[in-house]
C-alpha cells in the first residue's frame, strides 16, 4: 500500500488531498499511467507532466524513479514559496 498526496491545483482537479492505493507500479511513471486510466479527473490532472513535480517520502524526485520501499508519493505543481 502506498499513500498518494495531491497539492494545490492537482488536489483540486482530482478532488481529494490524499488516498491510499494498492499498486503494482514499478516507477512513478507507471503509477501515473495507472492513475490516468482510472477516471477523467485523473487524466486531466496528469495531462501535462511538465507542469508537475513529484516527491517520494518527502524528497523531490523524478518520474522515472522506482517506487520500491516508498511509502508516500506526492504530486504537485512547481513550488511557489518565499
Amino acid at each position: 500500500m502506498i499513500d498518494v498526496l495531491y497539492f494545490a491545483w492537482v488536489r483540486e482537479r482530482i478532488g481529494l488531498p490524499r488516498e491510499r492505493l494498492e499498486t503494482s507500479a514499478v516507477t512513478v511513471a507507471d503509477l501515473i499511467t495507472q492513475l490516468r486510466a482510472r477516471e477523467e479527473r485523473y487524466a486531466a490532472a496528469f495531462a501535462d507532466l511538465s507542469a508537475l513535480r513529484v516527491a517520494l517520502d518527502q524528497e523531490l524526485s523524478s518520474f522515472d524513479a522506482p517506487l520500491a520501499g516508498v511509502r508516500e508519493v506526492a504530486f504537485f505543481p512547481p513550488m511557489t514559496g518565499g
Binding site: A8, F76, T80, G81
Partner: peptide, 26 residues
Amino acid sequence: LMDYLKSRAPFWKKESRDGGETWVAA
C-alpha cells in the same frame, strides 16, 4: 536562502480577487 525557498520549499500560493481564484504559477 530566498532563491531556494522560492522553488524548493513546498508552498503554493493562490490569489483571490473579486473575479475568482488563481494559483500563482512558478
